[in-house]
């Protein structure tokens, strides 16, 4: 359908094959910027999630003991609630009159509200919050396979904490890190509710653009083309993750 076209002002689809829709995406700065913005947000979400999930997963595997089940459940809750409820909750938390700004102001730490809604910061917070479990779960299962006492062995051989992470824990958690990164990146790329609500219509991402075209403009062929571009990126990420796993297994 993405190679069909729809004349302006009409709802009738012309099924003559054309690359017009793709040319429009490539030629219009609005869509290219949207694409780059989406890629950037997804990348930042992945990086932040990895940064948070690594110590958290290590702690769950090595230190949580009998609280492990409870903590894993707490980590998973945002996922099983769907996208809408946690995002609405975050709006309360992040808004100019929300919990975070309210607390900081009443403590006298800031004079003016931080702008945490209607911009990329808010979306980033929402995305990391929503997709952290996708990073934690594969990491926990990768770290679970770490032989007991390897950290102790490394330290007794002269490795400081940072070297233990760099030389032992990170290489051994690479499969989990790659799988988690691919999952988080793809989820963030296609996420729709989070950027819509936390961006408050001021930050367009690829998913919200496709939504606009499909549901508001009713240009289905163009919406399909946008979706196809997203699909192509997903396929690319999938292939890259698969290649990276093979590479990690070999080295």
């Amino acid at each position: 359908m993405s190679i069909w076209s729809q004349p302006t002002g009409s709802l009738i689809v012309d099924p003559t094959p054309t690359i017009k829709n793709y040319a429009r995406i490539a030629g219009d700065g609005y869509y290219i910027r949207g694409l780059l913005r989406t890629l950037w947000l997804s990348l930042a979400t992945t990086a932040l999630a990895a940064l948070l999930a690594l110590p958290l997963s290590w702690w769950i595997v090595r230190r949580a003991g009998r609280f492990r089940g409870l903590i894993l459940t707490l980590v998973l809750i945002p996922m099983v609630c769907g996208a809408l409820l946690p995002t609405l909750g975050l709006m309360n938390l992040l808004g100019p009159l929300g919990v975070i700004n309210g607390t900081l102001k009443s403590l006298g730490l800031i004079d003016r509200s931080w702008k945490l809604l209607g911009n990329q910061t808010g979306i980033l917070i929402g995305l990391v919050h929503a997709f952290l479990p996708l990073m934690v779960l594969p990491l926990v299962s990768a770290l679970d396979r770490l032989p007991r006492d390897v950290e102790g062995a490394a330290m007794s051989l002269g490795a400081k904490r940072l070297q233990v992470w760099r030389r032992i824990i990170l290489p051994l958690s690479a499969p989990g890190l790659i799988a988690g990164s691919a999952l988080v990146f793809c989820a963030a790329l296609t996420s729709f509710v989070t950027p819509l609500l936390l961006g408050q219509g001021k930050v367009a991402t690829f998913a919200t653009m496709a939504y606009q075209q499909a549901s508001l403009v009713l240009d289905w062929p163009f919406a399909s083309a946008l979706a196809m571009v997203m699909l192509a990126i997903l396929a690319l990420i999938g292939t890259a993750a698969w290649g990276a796993q093979k590479w990690a297994a070999e080295t």
Partner: peptide, 20 residues
């Protein structure tokens, strides 16, 4: 003194070799 500065060799029951 932290473990990494002690120069003490340690062998574990489960070997704790670095698998990678």
């Amino acid at each position: 003194l932290p473990a990494w500065d002690r120069d003490i060799g340690l062998v574990f029951q489960n070997y704790a070799l670095f698998p990678h």
